[in-house]
Simulated scan of single mutants.
Amino acid sequence: MAQQHFLTQFSDKPRYNTKAVAQETGVPADTFRAWERRYGVPRPQRTEGGHRLYSERDIATIRWLRDRTAEGLTISQAIALMTDGNEANLSWLSTAVDTEPHTWERLNSRLFSALTDFDSTRAEQILGEGFALYPMEEVFLKLVQPVMVEIGEQWHAGRITVTAEHFATQFVRRKLSSLFNTYNITDGRGLVLLACAPSEQHDLGVLMLAVFLVRHGWQVIYLGPEVPVRDLIDTVRHLQPDIVAVAASTTESATQLLEAGRAITALPPPTPHFGYGGRAFNLNPMLIQRMPGAFLGRDAQEAVDTIADLLSASR
């Protein structure tokens, strides 16, 4: 069955509560609970206290059903289509999975057009299509991030207006902030403090890292753009995080991190790990040689893995 083949790429590990699923899919909780009662889809597991826990596979199923009903099918027709084993009816699913490079290119082009046309409704629909096909992290790394880089480059070249760039940035920031607030926890695998360099205004990459971390069970305190070094150090002394991660997109802002890194790594025990990353270090790896601490990687997923390795080694 094509639908079954499609779903096997998603984890069936139960980890998301009802509120998180409603936030990610845009489907009201009452709706997909009604689907569960009547049709047995999705299939959440339950905690000892009786609360539902959903997997990535459940979320993908809900998104797929949402999109089919949006196209005009009834929910019973959509579920029948999903489960009837008709390969012809579901050929678009296997095509989307098997021709991933073409699919990402198509999604990128459409999202770029929607954002530069100030069309948030269409942008939401395109993101929804991406989330229905791929895990959330892949959508941000292979769709949202490349599109935002392209928009930034087009703005610098004078091909799109600053208002279009601002609209796109705020659209993505709202999406990331919403996800961060949904998943953020008060206790977790460790405390990570995230910030941007003192003159760094571009914080989408750090906010994306914050979302990835909370989805992997880390407790995150996100300080945002333009954090002065002195205030950062005071906050580190007060909170005593396990790791301090800072970002810079330009050589100027990366240079400012030298002071922060030296001050943090010189703190008395318990001294937090100091990590850094951002576009400046990706474009100019020579900067890495000057920095104390650990380079976290070229993107948010690499940063998540590096942070896990740092804290695992220290424990």
Results as ranks from 00 to 15, higher is better:
residue 116 T to V: 09
residue 24 E to W: 01
residue 54 Y to M: 04
residue 125 Q to K: 14
residue 85 G to Q: 02
residue 47 T to K: 04
residue 291 M to N: 02
residue 309 D to A: 15
residue 4 Q to I: 14
residue 190 G to L: 05
residue 28 P to I: 00
residue 9 Q to V: 10
residue 178 S to M: 06
residue 71 E to R: 08
residue 102 H to L: 15
residue 48 E to C: 09
residue 265 T to D: 11
residue 240 Q to F: 07
residue 164 A to N: 09
residue 213 L to K: 07
residue 25 T to G: 03
residue 100 E to F: 02
residue 37 R to F: 03
residue 309 D to S: 12
residue 197 A to C: 03
residue 39 Y to E: 01
residue 271 T to D: 00
residue 154 Q to M: 14
residue 274 F to W: 01
residue 59 I to W: 08
residue 224 G to R: 08
residue 144 V to Q: 01
residue 282 N to C: 01
residue 132 A to V: 03
residue 158 G to Q: 07
residue 150 E to R: 15
residue 20 A to W: 03
residue 152 G to C: 06
residue 304 V to G: 13
residue 85 G to F: 02
residue 131 F to C: 02
residue 155 W to M: 10
residue 255 T to D: 05
residue 272 P to N: 03
residue 288 I to F: 13
residue 111 L to E: 07
residue 203 D to C: 07
residue 88 A to Y: 11
residue 115 L to A: 01
residue 149 V to P: 02
residue 43 R to W: 01
residue 31 T to E: 08
residue 29 A to P: 12
residue 230 R to Q: 13
residue 79 I to S: 01
residue 6 F to D: 03
residue 201 Q to M: 12
residue 107 L to D: 07
residue 207 L to I: 12
residue 208 M to N: 09
residue 60 A to N: 05
residue 188 G to V: 06
residue 140 F to K: 06
residue 168 A to G: 00
residue 221 I to S: 13
residue 308 A to I: 02
residue 152 G to Y: 10
residue 72 G to I: 01
residue 91 S to H: 13
residue 118 F to R: 14
residue 84 D to T: 09
residue 145 Q to Y: 02
residue 90 L to T: 06
residue 221 I to D: 13
residue 198 P to S: 10
residue 232 L to Y: 05
residue 61 T to H: 10
residue 158 G to F: 03
residue 294 A to L: 08
residue 177 S to Y: 11
residue 150 E to G: 09
residue 79 I to L: 06
residue 195 A to I: 08
